[in-house]
Every structure is written in structure tokens, then in C-alpha cells.
Simulated assay, not measured.
Amino acid sequence: MIPRPLIIDCDPGVDDAIALLLALASPAEFDLLGVTTVAGNVPLSLTTANARRICHLAQRADVPVYAGCPRPLLRSLTTAEDIHGATGLQGAALPEPALPLPAQHAVAFLIEQFTTASAPITLATLGPLTNLAVALIQCPKIAQGIDRVVIMGGSLGGGNVTPAAEFNIYVDPHAAKVVVEAGLPLTMIGLDVTHQVVTTPERLTALENLGTPVGKAAAGMLRYYGQLDVERYGLAAPPLHDPCVVAYLLRPDLFTGRPMHLAIETEGSLCLGRTVANAYPTAAAPANATVIETVDAEGFYTLLTERLGKL
């Protein structure tokens, strides 16, 4: 099997960190060309340092990390330290990143990769869509070099930062609108799916029992992460959002979804950032995304634990 060329755009964040570890543990499936960071869960300086820490933890010095946009297109930045902790990786004491930080901006890296690639590249987005939107605005022809974009963001129902909006889309709804309207092959994995993937005590123990630095770090982060969501939504355990994107690319058979017309609300004050998905597309509003609806949570955690055990 030829590894899939992949770029991960993220804002680590605990769940981003777990997603990165899952990708870094899968070299047979992914040719990970680079990781780009954006402000989101915590400010850009922290998301960039955290991505580098995770690559160092996984002993993947071959994967470069590029710092991207420090704020949304039009709005001031909203962060989520209440979920991820002040550093973004609460629960894990990771060393300072040893990898050098390239001078190239993440947007320039995306444009370069998508315009020069010999084969189309998959982009996994785990945070606000600012970097991709800016790249599309600067160089629309990058769409020709994109195989698909798999987004963790949005919701078919309610949100998690407002009653209407999921965090990644809410932070930069104008960027999300640019991406959704760019004619790209899109897959959306929203809260309806990720709230099915909860870190039960048994699943947490399985990660801890790996007995490796990666297993201990992952368990430590997940022990802290998501408790607010448990209380807010009455879930059995904390949900795990971003790794669903990487798991979908590894094992699409664990997920089900269907084509829908996707739009982003950028005008209303009450529904700013809402993802409006129409499961019954029309000629006037044709399907422009595959929206995932279900996941085999047990299969997901089996995959996650098995792969992290390889690091």
C-alpha cells in the first residue's frame, strides 16, 4: 500500500494531540508531509509548541511543524483553556520541543504543497479553518492539488460553545464559509459523531496500561480533558473529537454518512457559526459535502489503543 500524502492543520489542544499521535503512529498509511498550526483552543504560540512537543514525544523528528494564522479572519480570537487547560495539554508534562521551527508560514507551506504535489494531498483540519481559507483566498488554484478535506467541526444539532455552534466553526465562521463554498471534496465530522466516542474509564485504563511514555501522556491528558462536557451534556464520559478525523481516514468502515448541502451562518448573532446541513439536497442547493452521522466507538478505541501502542 502506498501511504496517503497527508497534511494535518490543527490547534493542539488535547484531542488534537491524540489525533496527531494516531497519525504519527500510522506511517504505513500516511506520508505526513507536515503539520500546520492555527490559533484556536489556545493561542498560536502554544498550539505550535504543543504540536512540536507531540512530534517529539512520538519520536517523529521527520515531520515539520509550521506556524499559521494567529487570529480569525474578521473576529477576535475565542480560546478554550477551560477545556484544555492553560497550556492546551493539561495532564501531560512534556519536554520543550527540540525540533526547529521552520521560518515558512503555514499558509505558504499549504500553497507550496498543493501547487507542486505530484499527487493530490489529503488535508485533515482539526481546528478553525483560517489557514486553509487564507490559502484559498491567496491562491484559488490550490484546490486542484487537494484530494479531499476532512473537517472536525460543526454539528447537525446543537453546538458546544453556543446553543447553535460548534467551537471550531464558531471561532472563525467566515473562514469556514470560504472553505465550504470553494468546491472542494469535503467530509464533515461533527459533534453528533464525536459525542458518540467517549473515553470511558475502561478505555482510559487500556491506554494507561500500554506502559509507554505515549500511553501515559495520552491517559494523563484525557484524565483531565472533557470533564466540563460531561457535566454540560450529561455524557457517560468525555467525548474525543479530533481523532475521529484520523480514524476516518484509516478506517472509513467504522463510520457512516451521506451527501448533504452544507452552509455556514455568518450573519446572525444568535446562530453565528452554525453549520446548516440539508440532508435532502436540491438542484439549487446541491450536495457539497459528505456529512458523517455514526461511528463504531468500540472499533475506534480499539484502533486508537493498538496504534498508540506502536509508538
Rank of each mutant, 00 (worst) to 15 (best):
V65N: 00
Q59S: 11
H84N: 05
A93P: 02
I83P: 00
P102W: 13
H105T: 00
G88S: 11
F109I: 00
L73Y: 06
A92D: 00
L110A: 09
P70K: 02
A92Q: 06
T87P: 03
L129I: 00
L73V: 03
P97Y: 11
A61M: 05
L46F: 14
T47W: 09
H84W: 04
G68Y: 05
I111A: 02
A106P: 09
A124E: 05
T47L: 08
L129R: 09
H56C: 09
N41A: 10
P95H: 07
F109Y: 10
T116G: 03
P102I: 04
N131K: 10
P102H: 13
N131I: 06
S45C: 07
G85H: 13
T79Q: 07
T125P: 01
P128F: 02
A124M: 13
A92T: 08
N41Y: 12
Q59G: 00
R75F: 00
A39T: 03
I121A: 03
Q104C: 13
Q104E: 15
Q104H: 01
L57K: 01
A103S: 13
E112N: 13
A49D: 12
Q90C: 07
E96S: 13
A61R: 14
R75D: 08
A117V: 11
L77H: 09
N41I: 02
L126V: 10
T125S: 12
L110E: 04
T36S: 09
P120V: 08
T78I: 11
G127L: 05
C69M: 13
G91N: 03
I83V: 15
A119L: 10
L46P: 13
A80C: 04
Q104T: 15
I111R: 11
T130H: 10
Y66W: 01
E81R: 14
P97T: 09
R53V: 01
L101D: 02
P43H: 07
G91Q: 05
L74T: 14
T122F: 02
R52S: 01
T130F: 08
L46M: 14
P70V: 01
T87F: 09
A39M: 09
A124S: 06
A92I: 04
N50D: 03
N131S: 10
A98W: 04
Q90K: 14
H84V: 12
D62W: 12
V42Q: 06
T130M: 11
T37G: 07
P97I: 04
A67G: 07
A39G: 12
A51C: 04
Q104F: 03
S76K: 12
G68D: 00
N50L: 01
E81S: 10
S45T: 15
I121Q: 05
T37Y: 04
A103G: 15
E96P: 06
